[in-house]
Design a protein around this nucleic acid. Structure first.
Lengths: 131, 131
DNA sequence: GGTACAATAATACAATTATACAATGAGATA
DNA sequence: TATCTCATTGTATAATTGTATTATTGTACC
């Protein structure tokens, strides 16, 4: 799967998994009916105990985003409509940007460093039509 | 472990532990990825309360030498991030930015949308010192 | 003596893991 | 078809790890 964890930032692993999967569903990378990796498979990928993944799946189940079924697996239920409402779209972009900046800061970069790189690449994006 | 304390010395115990572990890391007796003894194990060895060891571990964590993870343990980290001017660092920031923009584009945003949000959040980052 | 503060300890808590368990379904076999 | 077997799935519980909060101890200063 397409999930990366940060073991250093003191955000519980199960919370990180929940948030990443919520994001993948909201951005329609994961669509209704899709099966998530089994708890053991994802746990192996992430080098984590499968109970930690199971805890994340249970929270997503209770939130109504997925359905977990013993012996069968875990499946995406519904996609939150991000493309519909402009408000949700704005929130998605803000969250994405926030995540990007936080990661840059964690790597020790300063606002000027980031600003410089972003401006350069956005300029190219405008010129070439694709980032 | 290979730590000895001097209880007659008036240097606080947690400071002594911090210093000893810093030394063990500097001399590569402890290498990146190595797990430190659990707070309770080391505390038992040193005949000290485990909160005192936990305090030392927390300081080492904040100093970036180790990573403490609740439920998992405490691990020696890679050597500290290199200076801001290395080619490797610049490449990392560029890759991170590229990834961010690609994701935004995939969600259907335009360069102007992204530029607007990034500038706003970077401005706040400058003002508040943290993104 | 009394007060303030830092260091240490006691206790309760939360995250993660280890282990054993129960439900499901695919394939074998009668 | 029926049902048996067994690998695979999620679940439940207890043990282990670090964290947070509060109490105790010791020391310096007045």
């Amino acid at each position: 799967m397409f999930i990366e964890l940060d073991f250093r930032n003191h955000v519980p692993i199960y919370v990180q998994i929940v948030e990443r999967i919520k994001h993948l569903v909201a951005t329609e990378v994961l669509e209704p009916g899709d099966q998530l990796p089994t708890v053991r498979q994802l746990a192996a990928d992430l080098r984590v105990n499968f109970n930690t993944v199971a805890r994340a799946y249970r929270i997503l189940d209770q939130a109504g985003l997925v359905s977990t079924q013993q012996g069968r697996g875990t499946y995406v239920l519904e996609s939150l409509p991000p493309g519909r409402s402009t408000r949700l779209r704005q929130a998605a972009l803000k969250a994405l940007t926030q995540h990007f900046l936080t990661e840059a800061a964690r790597l020790g970069f300063e606002p000027d460093d980031v600003d410089h790189d972003v401006e350069k690449l956005i300029k190219r994006w405008r010129q070439e039509g694709t980032p």
